[in-house]
Amino acid sequence: MAEHKKEIDKLSGVETTGHEWDGLKELNNPLPKWWLYLFYATIVWSVGYWVLMPSWPLVSDYTSGLLGHSQRANVHREFEAAMSERAETGNQLMEASLEEIRSTPELLEFALASGGAAFADNCAPCHGTGATGFEGYPNLQDDVWIWGGSMDDILQTISYGVRSEHPDTRFGEMLAFGRDEILNDDEISAVANYVAAELAGTEPEDGADLDTGATVYMDNCAACHGDEGLGSKELGAPNLTAPNYLYGNTVEAIEAQVNNPRHGVMPPWIDRLGETTVKSLAVYVHSLGGGQ
């Protein structure tokens, strides 16, 4: 470093850095005091932090600090506190029958609130925010139930799902009459027209052979869907006289289903959400209008 003479700026009385650019010189002002003391304060703060909070890595561990802070321990505590706050009402809910829940405003309110919240997070993506369903995902507002609309039925469906990976899942399959060549195209067309015209009440195609359709139906379909098409809750075979078909009730849609059934999957929720939330959900779904 070349020594330079101390040069004082005449106007401000401050020393310059000694550099000059095209006649401009830089003043060598000290750091502002407020800034400097704040800087020192942060150093003091960091020392306190090292002592109190987890900070320095060691050879096989780290300093955990005098306060014993742990974000994970904190969240376990908060979570458990929230759970035990709800536990009392939750336990009552687990014990109570549907009638008891209905006649106890506190329980009903609890079930509908927590059931509604869980529905929005977990069920709405398939059944819709208003629970009115989409193609392939049943409407839960109406009183048409594939697997039953009593409190116990609904509870079981939600707990273990339908065609899910849970060992207790509800299960029912329809044969792939077209894909596996059990029926030929004419028979499939005839039975689809029969189902549309006689059970669903939609337009059959012109010149459809409804008599053949009726025979094919009785021979192949009635075992599961019933002679009258009312379906079977044990087999999960939908009621074919109901207004809402999962996959549509036009001749075309019915043909597609008979050719190669879709076999929709509903996931099991008991392990993911726990029994109290699942019970709340069942109360919520039951209350939507179609509960039996």
Partner: peptide, 17 residues
């Protein structure tokens, strides 16, 4: 959380579900 079918429907067109 969802079925394979839902993921397919959703990935092809999220607005469908």
């Amino acid at each position: 959380k969802y079925s394979d079918e839902w993921h397919r429907d959703h990935l092809i067109n999220p607005r469908s579900v």
